[in-house]
Nucleic acid binder design. Structure first.
Lengths: 223, 223
DNA sequence: AAAATGTTAATTGTTGACAAAATCAGGTGT
DNA sequence: ACACCTGATTTTGTCAACAATTAACATTTT
């Protein structure tokens, strides 16, 4: 579902159900590993079983749900081994996006990006000195989204978003924690500088380093 | 579809229909941009409309099909601008996979990979001197698949395969052509050597260079 | 004629019913 | 206890019918 569905008309019913089920999963109402009963869900939501079935199938390819023939759908259980793979994948796409953003800054396709990056970095710096972890976390996500958006590669952004959602399934929200804010900010600045300079290779390297050390920091916590 | 139904694709009828529709699209029986009529397809295949509908929906997020609410499904039309984005994405994932493969060679997780890579390279060399383009093309795909597989990241491989399929939708099979075989082989050797040496960074760089120059060669043809 | 409007046909969205498969419970034998 | 049948029950897979929306076409209006 790449569609923005900004139409005046109500989106399709199956689409609403899909969004609701996705919310249930990321919010933890549906725990990882649990089996999703089509009939039960249809009763809860007040729609037919076929509709919830369609919603489930459409969610399956996003990685949040595993389908087993003749047995049903299960909320995906993200293992530790998978987390490493997801980090690798996310890092590769993020590095590519930063490189593409730098390219688009250099050729003038994204004239406003430099200013927006600078402002975002300043806001993060403020959050850091105030030790407002919650705010920093939000700004951190916005920073990443900004670069993914500026890369002009919608499919990359969709895949990236799905990866992030799937990561959150690992031991409920453990990945939300931002540690070592000062170090994290330094890396963000390095990325921002490279993108603003239009240096594609530096941007790629800085982004890759950021994700890699993010994984390292996270692995360190798991003790 | 990552953790999806492991095992026989023909476990369910909808699965078969999905495979058949996918074949129709990649083979060109269903041209890019054409609207897919659920009823017509269900009559042709001798199954109910609901089943073909489910098959279409499950294919949608793979990138081969575009869904428009209340209007139907259309075979995705890949534009030139998109091809560049697809190359970027594919390059990022392939580079990551080569780096991961190098890592797994170094730590002994993939003991047989080095030998298999060497053999594949030798076969490609043979195809080159014989000027057997068709064979080289096949070996080329197998070489890439081997590295994606060795990376031990099934989701990455799934995404990669979908990207390749979507690329083939651009002006029917234009991307199948392998040009400049000698140059291509050199790049493959560089990748293979780095992976065998367990040098993650060199593997990443060589892989990235390979995809990038592949795009450049392809763009050159489009004149 | 061209544009706007109203009416009809075709296609998608949604639902409930039926068939096939898997799960569960209890009993039997060892 | 355990494993293995066996039948009842639940759950999924598939289908056909109904409702809502869109596309096509004839009609009117300018």
């Amino acid at each position: 579902m790449t569609g923005k569905a900004i139409g005046p008309r109500r989106a399709t019913l199956a689409g609403e159900v899909r969004a609701e089920i996705e919310r249930m999963i990321v919010d933890g109402d549906l725990a990882a590993g649990v089996k999703m009963n089509e009939l039960a869900l249809s009763n809860i939501m007040g729609v037919s079983r076929g509709t919830v079935r369609e919603a489930i199938r459409s969610l399956a390819d996003s990685g949040l749900i595993d389908l087993v023939a003749n047995r049903g759908a299960f909320v995906h259980e993200t293992t530790l081994a998978e987390v490493r793979n997801l980090y690798d994948l996310r890092g590769a796409i993020f590095a590519m996006a930063c490189s593409a953003s730098a390219r688009r800054v250099a050729d003038g396709t994204e004239p406003s990006l430099s200013k927006r990056l600078t402002r975002k970095i300043e806001a993060m710096q403020t959050a850091l000195v105030r030790e407002d972890t919650r705010l920093y976390y939000t700004l951190n996500i916005e920073f990443h989204d900004m670069l993914l958006e500026a890369a002009g590669n919608p499919k990359a952004k969709t895949i990236y978003d799905n990866l992030v959602k799937e990561m959150h399934l690992f031991r409920r929200r453990g990945l939300s924690i931002v540690t070592n804010l000062a170090r994290s900010l330094e890396e963000h600045i390095a990325i921002s500088d490279a993108v603003i300079a239009g240096d594609t290779e530096s941007a790629r390297a800085a982004a890759h380093h950021h994700i890699t050390s993010g994984l390292a920091r996270y692995m360190q916590i798991l003790d």
